[in-house]
C-alpha cells in the first residue's frame, strides 16, 4: 500500500535520511525504531509532505504522492504527534472536528462521528467543551488520536505518540490502542525509540541508524535472526522481556503436550504471546490453562511447567548469537 524507494534528505551537511526503501502492506503496522537523531521523524514527514525529499519516490496505493495537491494528500492521512499539537484555542470537540470542517462535513455527521470516537477512546462527553490545557497528558494524547482518526483515513502516521506519557499511562494506552477496532483496518507507520513499544504494537519493525534501515522484519526475526551486531546490541538490554513478548504460543504449539484435562479453568488464545500466558498463571496459581488454537481448532490444557519446557525446547532450536 505504501511504497518508499531510495529516499534521501540532507539538511545542510547532515544526511538525515540516506537512501531508505520499504513497503507497508494494507492494514499492517510498521514501527520505525532507532535512537534519537537517526532520521525517523524526517522519514515520516516526507510521507505526508511536511518535508520534501531530495530524491526518491513515495507512492500510496500505487499513486505517487506528488500527483495530488499536498492539502488533499494530508486530509487523507492521519497524523499524531508526540506533543499532540492540539489547538489551545479550540475546545476538544472543535479540535477533533478540524478535518471534517476542512472536508465540509455537515454538523450532524461531524457531531455523530466525534461522539462515537470519544466513546471508543473512553473519553467522557463532559470533556467536549473543555480546552486541551484542562486535560491530562493521557487524555490529550487520546484526543490527538481521535483527531487523526476522525475522517477515517486509510493511513495513519504516528511520531512517538506515547513518548511524553508516564509509564503507567503509556501501557494503559498501549492496550487500548491494540484493542481499538478503528486501527485494525489501518495502515500505520509508528515512529518510536522505545523497543518495548515497537515490539508490542508493530507487525514489523524497521530498525534505523544514521539515516539508514539496518534491518526490517517481524519482531521475532530481529530478535532471533539479527542482521548484525548493531541489531542484537540494540535489543540486548531488554532481551528476555522482548523474547517473552515476541514469542507467540503458536510458535511453541508443537512443543506443548497434547490434550490433557479440560478443567473449568480459564482459557487463552494461541495468538497471545508467551508473556501474556505467563501473566495468566499469576492469577490462576497451580491450575492449568486452556489454550485455543484458532487455526487448528485444537485446545490444549497445559501446566506452567509444560509451558516453560516448550519455551526452552523452542529456544534450543533458534540460532545463537
Amino acid at each position: 500500500m505504501i511504497k518508499v524507494e531510495r529516499l534521501v534528505k540532507t539538511f545542510c551537511t547532515t544526511k538525515a535520511v540516506d537512501g531508505i526503501s520499504f513497503e507497508v502492506a494494507e492494514g499492517e503496522t510498521l514501527a520505525l525504531l532507532g535512537t534519537s537523531g537517526c532520521g525517523k521523524t524526517t522519514t515520516l514527514k516526507m510521507l505526508n509532505r511536511l518535508i520534501e525529499p531530495d530524491s526518491g519516490t513515495i507512492s500510496i496505493n500505487n499513486k505517487n504522492i506528488l500527483e495530488a495537491p499536498p492539502e488533499t494528500l494530508r486530509r487523507g492521512i492521519g497524523y499524531v504527534l508526540q506533543n499532540n499539537g492540539l489547538f489551545p484555542h479550540y475546545t476538544v470537540a472543535e479540535n477533533i472536528a478540524i478535518v471534517p470542517q476542512l472536508l465540509k462535513w455537515d454538523k450532524v455527521k461531524t457531531d455523530k462521528r466525534v461522539s462515537e470516537l470519544l466513546d471508543k477512546l473512553h473519553l467522557g462527553k463532559e470533556h467536549l467543551k473543555a480546552y486541551p490545557n484542562e486535560l491530562s497528558g493521557g487524555q490529550q494524547q487520546r484526543i490527538g488520536l481521535a483527531r487523526a482518526l476522525v475522517a477515517d483515513p486509510p493511513v495513519l502516521l504516528m511520531d512517538e505518540p506515547f513518548g511524553a506519557l508516564d509509564n503507567v499511562t503509556r501501557s494503559k494506552i498501549h492496550s487500548e490502542f491494540k484493542a481499538l477496532d478503528e486501527l485494525k483496518r489501518k495502515t500505520i507507520i509508528l515512529v518510536t525509540h522505545d523497543v518495548q513499544e515497537a515490539f508490542e504494537l508493530a507487525d514489523r519493525i524497521a530498525l534505523m541508524d544514521k539515516g539508514k534501515i539496518v534491518q526490517i522484519g517481524r519482531p521475532a526475526e530481529l530478535l532471533f535472526k539479527p542482521a548484525n551486531e548493531f541489531v542484537s546490541g540494540f535489543l540486548n538490554e531488554q532481551r528476555l522481556q522482548l523474547e517473552f513478548k515476541a514469542i507467540k504460543i503458536t510458535d511453541l504449539w508443537e512443543h506443548l503436550p497434547e490434550g490433557g484435562r479440560k478443567t473449568n479453568t480459564s482459557s487463552l488464545s494461541a495468538d497471545a504471546d508467551f508473556w501474556s500466558a505467563l501473566e495468566q498463571f499469576k492469577f490462576i496459581k497451580g491450575e492449568n490453562l486452556n489454550i485455543l488454537n484458532q487455526q487448528s481448532k485444537e485446545i490444549k490444557n497445559i501446566s506452567f511447567e509444560a509451558l516453560m519446557a516448550a519455551y526452552s525446547q523452542y529456544k534450543h532450536l533458534q540460532p545463537h548469537d
Binding site: N48, L73, R75, Y79, L81, L86, F87, L102
Partner: peptide, 23 residues
C-alpha cells in the same frame, strides 16, 4: 506560535491561509 501546533495544522491539510486565519 507553538511550532508543533502549526505543524499539526499543516499536517491535517490546512492551506497557508487557513493556517494563518485559524491558527
Amino acid at each position: 506560535v507553538d511550532a508543533t501546533v502549526k505543524e499539526a495544522a499543516v499536517a491535517m491539510g490546512m492551506s497557508k491561509w487557513q493556517v494563518l486565519f485559524k491558527v
